[in-house]
Computed example of a mutant assay.
Amino acid sequence: MKNKKLEANLSMAVSKVFSGLNMNALKYLLPLWMSPLTGATLRCTFAAAAFWVIGWFMPPEKSSAKDKWLLFLLGALGLYGFMFLYLAGLSKTTPVSSSIFTSLQPIWVFLMMIFFYKEKATTKKIIGISIGLIGALVCILTQQSDDLASDAFTGNMLCLLSSVVYAVYLILSQRILTAIGAITMLRYTFSGAAVSAIIVTFITGFDAPVFSMPFHWAPFLILMFVLIFPTIISYMLLPVGLKYLKTTVVAIYGYLILIVATIASLALGQDRFSWTQTFAIIFICIGVYLVEVAESKER
């Protein structure tokens, strides 16, 4: 069991580090080297193909036709919606701000569980949710548009909406995941997302100067990093951590996204130090921690 826990901790750490760096890599690519719509299409189709190939080398997993169709629809609406909204938002704001709203996902999950699934609203949860939302409001209302964020308010709102959509996706997919395997889920959700992405791209057009001539190696290699590490490897590592670690430990690893994205953004010049952003990060971290601790104690 100790080896399994060590493996789970390493899996979560690597997954979240990749997720943090993903924001900086995408910020470099968007919108100069590819549009948000095209970026979502590339990620969804590449991941769908990769997970089908990986699944051929994995033990077969039992699942019903109904589950597969539900996963497909969930990917077509939820997963694709999340990726498009997130990429569109990131193209207009900074990686640090986008990571702030990504960290709000546990709060949205618990709010939905309270309103739609009649989960108990404890005092600690209410306090945690309130503190987290204050941090989000500070980030939305105080960040100004500049050379690093072309339309900070719109970008932040899109990232906020993407985190809500992803929370819905998490709740629904978790209920299906109890009856099927992780690879089956990844196969069909990303297949659904890929179909939606291809249809939208067919209508709007494929906009990716990264593939145009003369060929540019730097943006191409950064795109390959996004497609392989945060998209494929990160999603493959998550189930390992979720299986052997407590909810609170998983939540704490989520803070790595904020930390990595902040350090990388400041080092690469993709963001500037801001006391209001720091205030927002601290409040959201405290809020998510309180919510996760309350949930862990209930379980």
Score class of each variant (00 low, 15 high):
residue 197 A to H: 02
residue 143 Q to S: 14
residue 162 S to C: 14
residue 214 P to F: 03
residue 157 M to F: 13
residue 205 G to K: 07
residue 159 C to G: 08
residue 109 V to K: 06
residue 181 G to T: 12
residue 193 A to H: 06
residue 221 L to R: 01
residue 107 I to F: 01
residue 114 I to T: 12
residue 144 Q to N: 14
residue 120 K to N: 11
residue 104 L to V: 05
residue 97 S to M: 06
residue 128 G to Y: 09
residue 102 T to F: 10
residue 208 A to R: 03
residue 96 V to F: 01
residue 132 G to Q: 11
residue 141 L to T: 14
residue 173 S to V: 14
residue 143 Q to F: 10
residue 146 D to P: 07
residue 93 T to W: 01
residue 178 T to A: 12
residue 187 R to D: 02
residue 188 Y to N: 13
residue 190 F to R: 02
residue 144 Q to P: 00
residue 143 Q to K: 15
residue 123 T to W: 09
residue 153 F to I: 13
residue 213 M to Y: 08
residue 176 I to N: 10
residue 129 I to G: 04
residue 122 T to W: 05
residue 203 I to T: 07
residue 109 V to R: 04
residue 168 V to L: 15
residue 162 S to Q: 11
residue 130 S to K: 09
residue 126 I to Y: 02
residue 213 M to H: 07
residue 213 M to F: 07
residue 191 S to V: 01
residue 93 T to M: 05
residue 192 G to T: 07
residue 219 P to W: 03
residue 216 H to E: 13
residue 154 T to G: 09
residue 208 A to H: 05
residue 141 L to A: 14
residue 132 G to R: 08
residue 121 A to R: 05
residue 169 Y to V: 09
residue 197 A to T: 03
residue 222 I to H: 03
residue 183 I to A: 07
residue 145 S to Y: 12
residue 200 V to N: 02
residue 106 P to H: 04
residue 178 T to F: 09
residue 138 V to R: 12
residue 213 M to N: 05
residue 172 L to C: 13
residue 161 L to C: 15
residue 136 A to K: 03
residue 149 A to Q: 10
residue 198 I to S: 05
residue 218 A to E: 08
residue 135 G to R: 08
residue 131 I to Q: 05
residue 153 F to C: 11
residue 121 A to G: 02
residue 166 Y to S: 11
residue 180 I to G: 09
residue 122 T to A: 04
residue 215 F to Q: 04
residue 130 S to A: 15
residue 165 V to F: 12
residue 136 A to L: 07
residue 170 L to C: 13
residue 131 I to W: 05
residue 195 V to N: 02
residue 103 S to D: 02
residue 102 T to E: 04
residue 130 S to Y: 04
residue 139 C to S: 14
residue 187 R to P: 07
residue 115 F to I: 13
residue 97 S to T: 07
residue 156 N to V: 05
residue 147 D to C: 02
residue 213 M to L: 13
residue 193 A to P: 09
residue 208 A to D: 04
residue 204 T to Y: 01
residue 210 V to W: 00
residue 176 I to K: 09
residue 191 S to W: 03
residue 201 T to Q: 05
residue 183 I to C: 04
residue 167 A to S: 15
residue 198 I to T: 10
residue 217 W to H: 00
residue 151 D to Y: 06
residue 96 V to C: 01
residue 221 L to W: 10
residue 183 I to V: 15
residue 190 F to W: 11
